[in-house]
């Protein structure tokens, strides 16, 4: 029997996990290229493509004009003719500029063409508030895209997820949107050096618990873990689940948890009304109604554009305290 020395746990920030994944994906497949605004020479305003131009050259790391429709369409035309593009849309808010390409073209071409097309396209973008960038650079619009058949949507909650989900997205033969949260780009965690995938459509139980389930996306996963620690004092043993992929959604893992804990809350940074949490809550009550001891709660941003002033923005942002408070409020309503 041979013993293998355990590798030192390497911790790197979220932003470096993305850059590392891009490099490894481009090394393994010459058909992978990245196009977007300031992704080449500048290495992206978030630093997620830093170093790639030097290694792969301007043909594969492509600075584009500020033309989101043009860039997104370029990705589609390239994907439909044999390449595996990654299209970087700097801020998720800018997705509104290229909605036709994403919603009417990329998502539907396979179906409209009777299955003959294959669109291995990754749309990579940054969502989230908390940086005083105001209403047009701070939104979390993932629910829009989960509503469109033909698209897959992932939302990494940390560095390990960022790399593994990006690898799975690029290797997938469908259009996949990777929605990162800009306020956790500096978050550090263990990330294996070798290339690896996190399977799409599979949720992760982040923190096991026995009597309450919190289902959270993106940055709200770490906030929910904090909330779970706060709620220990209330006698709660909270299970935190990260769906990782929002579309397709892993209903099974979530329902199993709720059948065990009998109470659930969903949390996301996006505006609560019409958010993806509403869909998750509806699925929980459909599949686990008889097991529920309380209404399924929801935490999200209030129904307002994202404000600029730090004071207002703090008021706007969901966080661990707000999640814990909502859990306590729900338990007050318990049957």
């Amino acid at each position: 029997m041979t013993t293998i020395e355990a590798p030192a746990t390497r911790e790197i920030p979220y932003v470096s996990a993305i850059a590392e994944a891009f490099g490894q994906l481009m090394r393994e497949d010459p058909n992978v290229f990245i196009a977007g605004e300031d992704v080449a020479l500048y290495g992206s305003v978030f630093g997620v493509t830093r170093g790639l131009l030097k290694e792969f050259g301007p043909q594969r790391v492509v600075d584009t004009p500020i033309s989101e429709s043009g860039i997104m369409g370029l990705g589609l035309g390239a994907a439909a003719t044999g390449l595996r593009p990654v299209i970087d849309i700097m801020f998720m808010d800018f997705m509104a500029v290229c909605m036709d390409e994403v919603v009417n073209q990329i998502a539907k071409i396979k179906y409209m063409f009777g299955g003959t097309a294959r669109i291995p396209l990754t749309i990579h973008t940054m969502a989230g508030a908390g940086t005083s960038m105001a209403a047009q650079h701070s939104q979390s619009l993932e629910a829009w895209f989960c509503h469109i058949p033909g698209l897959k949507v992932v939302m990494p909650s940390g560095p390990y997820e960022a790399k593994g989900l990006l690898v799975a997205a690029v290797r997938d033969d469908n259009p996949v949107m990777v929605v990162n949260t800009k306020t956790i780009l500096g978050m550090k965690a263990h990330v294996p050096e070798q290339i690896y995938e996190i399977p799409l459509g599979k949720a992760n139980v982040v923190r096991p618990g026995s009597n309450f389930t919190i289902l959270a996306t993106g940055r709200m996963v770490s906030e929910s873990v904090k909330a779970a620690e706060m709620l220990v004092a209330d006698g709660l043993d909270v299970e935190v689940i990260d769906p990782r992929t929002l579309q397709p959604f892993d209903t099974e893992t979530v329902v199993q948890s709720v059948r065990k804990t009998h109470r659930a809350l969903v949390a996301h940074e996006a505006v609560r009304f019409g958010g993806i949490g509403a869909e998750f809550a509806a699925q929980i009550q459909e599949e686990a109604f008889d097991y529920l001891d309380a209404p399924v709660g929801r935490v999200g941003a209030p129904f307002t554009p994202v404000p600029f002033s730090p004071v207002l923005e703090k008021e706007y942002m969901p966080n661990a305290e707000k999640i814990a408070a909502e859990v306590r409020r729900l338990l007050g309503k318990q049957a």
Partner: peptide, 12 residues
């Protein structure tokens, strides 16, 4: 809708 798709095919 065609022009952006066309430049993608040409890029390819």
């Amino acid at each position: 809708a065609g022009p952006p798709i066309a430049i993608g095919a040409a890029f390819s």
